[in-house]
Each structure stands twice: as C-alpha cells, then as structure tokens.
Write a protein that binds this DNA or RNA. Structure first.
Lengths: 231, 231
DNA sequence: ACCTGAACACCGTTCAAGT
DNA sequence: ACCTGAACACCGTTCAAGT
C-alpha cells in the first residue's frame, strides 16, 4: 500500500450537501438551534456563507435536512417483535433520538407531516394492521399515536435544552415538585396531589406508559379486534 | 376644505403591559409569528421600540404573555357535564383557540409546562379524579391526554399557517391524498391504503376521536375503575 | 459548475438622554 | 417613573465577481 494519499489537513474537500448537513447537525448539537448560523456554519466549513446556498435553499430546508438525517438513524422494526413491542420500540427510537438531539423535538413538533413524520406514521400503521385493528379505525389510531409522540417530542425538546449544563433532570424535577406544592390549593388541587410523583418521575417510562394507554384504547375492550391477551 | 387641527386621535393612552400584549396578539393574528417585531409593535403603539422593554423583558416573554392571553379565553368547565364530556370540551377549547390563533399552537407545543399548560393539566386531572381513575394512574393518564393535545396543537399550527390565504383546507387535503397515492407501494403500503380517507377528513372530528381513544384506554377494560357504562 | 465575501435589509436589545 | 430613538451587534440572503 504505497499509495499514500496525504491528506492536506482540511483542504477543500469540495462542499457537498452531505457535508453541510453533517456540520449543521454538529452545530445544532453543540450550540442549539439558535447557534445554527450561516456564518458559523461557513466558518466550520472553511468557506463563505454564500457558498452554502449553492447546495441548500435556505435555513428552513437545512434545519429540515438535519432533522431527516437524525430521524433516518432510528432503528428498523424487529421482524420478530409483536406489534405492540414494535410500536414501543419505534416510539422509544424517536424519544431517544430527541434525547440525544433536543432540537429535533422542536422540529418534529412543528409539522406538517412530511417525509420525516410520514415514515413514522407508516411504520405505526403497519403494526396496527398486524394487530388487526379494523380498517376504518387505523387512521385514527395511527394519528393518535403519532400525535402523542410528537407532543412529547415538543415538550422534551425544551426540557433538555433548558436543563442545559448545570442543573440535571433530577434536580429540575425536584424543583418542579416543590413549586407545584406551593400552588394555590383551590386552583391547583389536582396538580398538588401528584406533585410528589415528580420526584420519582422517569421520563422514558412515563412516555412508554402513555403509549401503552393509547394502545389499550386501540385494542381495547369493546367487541374489538383482539380484546385482551395483548401484553 | 378647512383642514382642521389634527386631533391626536390616539393620544398617549399610557403604554401598559396589557395594551402591549393586546397589540402583540393582533399582530400575531394578522402577520404571524415572524411578523411580531419590536419595530412593528412600536409603530402600532405609536412609540419607540425601547419603550416596550419597560413593560416586558423581551420577545420570549411577550410571546408567552400573548399565548397566555389566548389560553385564558378558553371556557371553564360546565358543572353539569360528565367527566368525559368535560375533557372533550376542554380539548376542543384548546383546539379552537389554536384554529383561531395558529401561532398559539407552536407556542404551546414548545413547552415546558408552565402556567399555560399547567392549567389544562389541572383541569384534565380533576375530571380523571371524577372518573375514579386510580390515584396511581392519574398522572400518566393526564399526561397522555395533555401530550396528545399539545401534539395536535403543534401540527395544526403549521397546517393553518401554511394554508395561508389561497388554498383552503379541503384543497390542501385533496392534494395530500393525491401525493400519498403516488408514494412507493413498498415503502408506504399502509399510508397508501388510508390516503383516500384524507378526502373525507375532518380535523376536529379526528382530534376528538383521538381523545376518545385515549379515554377508552384510561377507563378501559381491565378490572379498571368503571369499566363500561361510560358513554 | 462552484465558490467568495462584501453588501443589503432586516432583526432584538441597550442605553444615554429626555419628560 | 416612563418614554424616545439612535446605536450596537448581530442575522439570513443575495449577487457581482472570481476560479
């Protein structure tokens, strides 16, 4: 192997959409959505801001492409899993992707359903078919699951971004519990009764519990498709 | 043509947080979130941009205050309603508020749970107590409902904003149905089977159906609190 | 074809100065 | 106490000019 391509450190690897999106993801991960600047991005790519526009139409598209890149990372279905397990795994895949890249949550929560979200919709729908949910109920069921997932996505995005460096999640939840317990007993009777649960709160588990609740409603009780037995 | 003295018309009603927030809501309704500018707002209030900062700490707080103002508009619970009815009415209240003020959806979807969303959480929770959902399950159930509502909120926000003036919702859904039917049959088998339903899609009804699905999961089948009978 | 970087038309926010 | 508006430090985006 005599061919020794000496790499000129960082010579003009020609700019490409791929490289741009990759650098954007890095920037978003390290400095957040407001840190994704054409100037910062250009510097990281050792070029001028104008160059980026040759490969990408603007900031919105770039943000979308970065989101797509992360979402594409979510694992495929396990063929051996039950439909419920597959849906849980998919939902957790989205959850974890957002945990690792909080800005993705904000992005997904904003809709409208494009390729990114449509892919998730498709995967949920297939599992619902496998669950023998009646045709007429599939759309509603898939939408409900997806909307729930996107709802949590949006909430978690800011949670983790707000938690920034210093305060970790546990401290944050403790503080929240304390705050809830100070609320007006008349106006916030219910909230106060559940405040203490925040101290034992597990975001992931809670998220999954919500998925299970909706799944129960979907498969659930009536003369439905497959009453119990699930789980 | 006796051009008479210009009456001050809009004399310095002294600036106040209330007036500022009111003007912000108007601006947001007419020109969208990107149109809420300190300069535009100042002009509308016949003052300079700096003046606003005396009453409001910055753009983020202003956006939050505007959201609060709209959310405060949602009707209170009807004391005679069943818990399910009350939850549906509340959810529809949020839905309709976003329909009238699309930017509110984006705002709510971003979390974190503050006074705005907490109020909704509280109201849901109370109805769940009335439904005799077991204590240990209340938090999860209320969260699931709220997250679903916020998920739809985020999606609808952009739908309506994208639909802007020309294209109305029906045309938009028709176009979406057509697009879905063009998708790759292998990759989007499920999505294609439900595409046609978009042509008969009713956002409001679909939203409610999702609520009912989750409610079914909550009250649903097991040895639960009040198995059937509900509705 | 692709890249450069100055220039344009904006922003949110600050702050000395006014009343 | 409250308001004014110029000024500051940014933005995204465009575009003539370069290779």
């Amino acid at each position: 192997m005599a061919t020794r391509t000496r790499r000129p450190e960082r010579r003009q690897d020609p700019l490409s959409r791929e490289r741009i999106v990759g650098a954007a993801v890095e920037l978003l991960d390290t400095v957040g959505e407001s840190g994704l600047t054409f100037r910062a991005l250009a510097e990281r790519l050792a070029t001028g801001p104008g160059a980026i526009y040759w490969h990408v139409t603007g900031r919105t598209e770039l943000l979308g492409a970065a989101t797509d890149a992360v979402v594409a990372t979510i694992a495929d279905d396990d063929a051996d899993a039950t439909p419920q397990e597959a849906i849980r795994a998919l939902a957790l895949g989205v959850f974890d992707a957002i945990d690792a890249h909080p800005w993705v949550g904000t992005q997904l929560a904003r809709g409208p359903w494009q390729s990114r979200t449509l892919r998730v919709f498709e995967r949920i729908g297939r599992q619902l078919q496998a669950l023998r949910v009646p045709d007429a109920a599939q759309f509603t069921a898939a939408s409900a699951l997806l909307n729930y997932i996107l709802g949590v996505a949006g909430q978690n995005a800011d949670n983790t971004e707000a938690a920034k460096p210093g305060i970790d999640r546990t401290e944050y939840l403790d503080a929240m519990a304390a705050a809830w317990e100070q609320l007006d007993p008349d106006e916030y009777a219910f909230t106060r009764t559940v405040a203490d649960q925040l101290r034992r709160h597990d975001d992931r588990a809670e998220f999954l519990a919500g998925i299970d609740l909706i799944l129960a409603g979907i498969t659930g009780p009536g003369p439905g498709p497959r009453t119990a037995g699930s789980r």
